[in-house]
């Protein structure tokens, strides 16, 4: 059973030791990784996925329950406790969505594959705009649908205890709903993100700089208050986006009426 995962700091881009020497996460934690582009966010989650053992350019070490991970994890992907959904991960198989998920569920030894497939599709469809057609080939799914299905598959069929998500906000999937849904599952979620809402809804965030873990900030009481306001503003923009997406015209009146309904802008 995985209870805790730890990152032991290594070196940054120019070989300088990382300011953060060790971070521990336990089951149920939601963590964000933030930092400028090129600061090493993707590299950090790659290290986690690979169970780096001083054998990657950063020299970091990953521990599971305080010890070096067992080799059975890396010998069979089905035992690998980490699902990584990268900025490029894609489906390349032209199998039908339903058939593929059913196959994956059977490989995982599910007793009731069709029920678990239904749950997976249901989860994915809550994140996407247009529902996924089960008869589609996996390669026919849009970018956002693909990302949604990858997440749903990793959480439900894969049932991975640790899930790494690289910049899901860019995939056009529903972010808050994703966070709400994900928090119902007892897992460790690590988000690489540029999105203040995701970052502030996390329990803590690692700040990357020049290839190093520069700081770990726990989301405090003040930030938790602020995030409520950010949510409102973000929803405002999302509403406008939805409006335009649906093919409507954004008139001055609609715009101003909507602004009036935002509490933080009106006191």
């Amino acid at each position: 059973m995985i209870e805790q995962i730890s990152i032991i700091g290594g070196f940054g881009k120019n070989g300088q030791p990382e300011p953060v020497k060790r971070v521990d996460f336990k089951m149920g934690d939601v963590i964000s990784i933030v930092g400028q582009t090129g600061s090493g966010k993707t590299t950090l989650i790659d290290d986690i996925e690979l169970f780096a053992n001083e054998n990657t350019p950063s020299g970091r070490k990953i521990l599971i329950n305080g010890e070096a991970p067992e080799s059975r994890f890396s010998n069979n992907v089905s035992n690998h406790p980490i699902a990584l959904i990268t900025q490029h991960t894609n489906f390349l198989s032209d199998m039908q969505v339903y058939k593929f998920l059913l196959t994956h569920a059977s490989i995982r030894g599910s007793k009731d594959p069709s029920a678990i497939v239904e749950e997976t599709i249901d989860f994915a469809n809550q994140l996407t705009g247009e529902a996924i057609d089960l008869n589609y080939a996996m390669t026919e799914l849009s970018g956002g649908q693909t990302r949604a299905l990858l997440i749903a598959d990793a959480v439900i069929i894969g049932n991975s205890p640790i899930i790494l998500l690289d910049e899901i906000e860019n995939a056009g999937i529903h972010r808050t709903r994703a966070l709400d849904l994900l928090k119902r599952y007892e897992k460790i979620f690590i988000f690489v993100t540029h999105d203040p809402r995701i970052a502030l809804l996390s329990d803590c965030r690692i700040v990357m700089k020049n290839g190093s873990m520069n700081d770990v900030i726990t989301t405090g009481v003040e930030e938790r208050k602020v995030v409520e306001v950010i949510k409102e503003l973000d929803d405002l923009l999302l509403d406008f986006r939805m409006h335009i997406r649906n093919g409507s015209v954004l008139t001055e009146k609609i715009f101003e009426d909507r602004l009036k309904s935002v509490k933080c802008l009106n006191n």
Partner: peptide, 26 residues
């Protein structure tokens, strides 16, 4: 590096179906 973990698992199962004794290196 180019495919999803789900597909890796299905691919692996298909390899084992064709060659049950084989050792697999991903």
């Amino acid at each position: 590096d180019l495919i999803s973990q789900a597909e890796r698992e299905v691919f692996r199962a298909r390899v084992l179906e064709a060659a049950p004794e084989i050792s697999i290196a991903e």
